[in-house]
């Protein structure tokens, strides 16, 4: 007789998720339906006040900006990650190049953001360089705008896009590109009509792994963005720590979660329809990709 140990093996995982994911989520859901207490915390009274406050023009414009910045940053990340993943997959020393991709993780991410400040700041390396080259006499304001936020976000999340793209491109049969060329496709046509459809699984994973955390970004816009680069993550943090309106912070968080969740489901569903069999073959499906995804609200 063989016993099914599946449930026992799943135990630790279930416990972990319950304590650190489901329970906090439940608390946030609960708080979002309560009344605010004056100095933080909540009053145990049911209320839809927090959700009514969401329909606030300032908040909606931040939400719209967050969506826009996340979209642009994701597009740039993927556009850079695609050729990167391709060249790593085709190179002779994959291990070394992959190592270089993950090396930045050895440095704390706050320190990496400060490194960007050191590069882009008014007295930073880039301005120094421009002055030495005689291109500018006074400093250029690189920091504290949306461009700086997007640049640093792209830098931060590039490895998360390169790794899944690399792993699907690595499994791709490059003879297919030769076949496409042989059948009359130009280099570009071969890439667009044969490579891209066959690495859809990796693309979906890469998009979700960058879009979702960027949507919840907090530290990057706080440190390199100005007031006009504020994102939802910053608003939530302000509501928790400054305004002390915990129900509102919770309801905005719920909004972020629902929005990203919805985006992920829609995106995964549309690309699955077009690439179903590829996903079956490679085992890297949009669904398995979404399963392990970090929800918005950190970084």
């Amino acid at each position: 007789m063989t016993r099914n140990y599946g449930k026992i093996y799943a135990g630790p995982q279930a416990l972990w998720l319950t304590v650190f994911f489901a329970a906090p989520l439940a608390i946030i859901v609960a708080y979002s339906f309560m009344k605010r207490d004056l100095y933080g915390g909540v009053l145990p009274q049911a209320s839809l006040e927090a959700y009514r406050s969401l329909a606030n023009p300032t908040l909606l414009s931040v939400a719209w900006r967050t969506l826009w910045v996340s979209f642009i940053a994701t597009v740039f990340t993927i556009l850079i990650a695609l050729p990167c993943g391709y060249s790593i997959a085709r190179s002779g020393n994959q291990a070394m190049r992959l190592f270089l991709v993950i090396v930045p993780f050895w440095t704390n991410f706050l320190i990496r953001i400060y490194a960007w400040i050191a590069i882009l700041g008014n007295e930073g390396f880039l301005n120094d360089l421009l002055k030495i080259l005689g291109l500018r006499t006074n400093s250029v304001q690189f920091l504290y705008n949306q461009g700086a936020v997007i640049l640093v976000l792209v830098y931060m999340y590039l490895p998360y896009a390169i790794l899944p793209l690399f792993s699907t491109i690595d499994k791709f049969d490059f003879t297919l590109l030769e076949a496409a060329r042989d059948l009359g496709a130009t280099r570009m046509q071969a890439l667009m009509k044969v490579l891209i459809p066959n690495i859809r699984g990796g693309l979906v994973t890469a998009v979700l792994f960058t879009f979702i955390p960027i949507f919840g970004a907090y530290a990057v816009p706080l440190l390199v963005g100005g007031k006009d680069a504020y994102m939802l993550g910053n608003v939530i943090a302000d509501q928790v720590t400054k305004t002390r309106n915990w129900p509102l912070a919770s309801s905005i968080s719920m909004g972020v979660t629902v929005l990203t969740g919805l985006a992920a489901v829609i995106f995964a569903a549309t690309s699955r329809r077009t690439a179903q069999h590829v996903v079956e073959d490679s085992g890297i499906g949009p669904l398995s990709a979404t399963a392990g995804i970090p929800s918005g609200g950190q970084a």
């Binding site: 003879t175 130009t186 009509k193 066959n198 690439a275 069999h277």
Partner: peptide, 29 residues
Amino acid sequence: PPDKRRCNTVFQSYALFPHLTVFENVAFP
């Protein structure tokens, strides 16, 4: 380049496009 030569290849591994049906594979060119 290969796409400018009037010869076509049958590959050892077949190199059929997995994301296309048989019809669309043949229709590719």
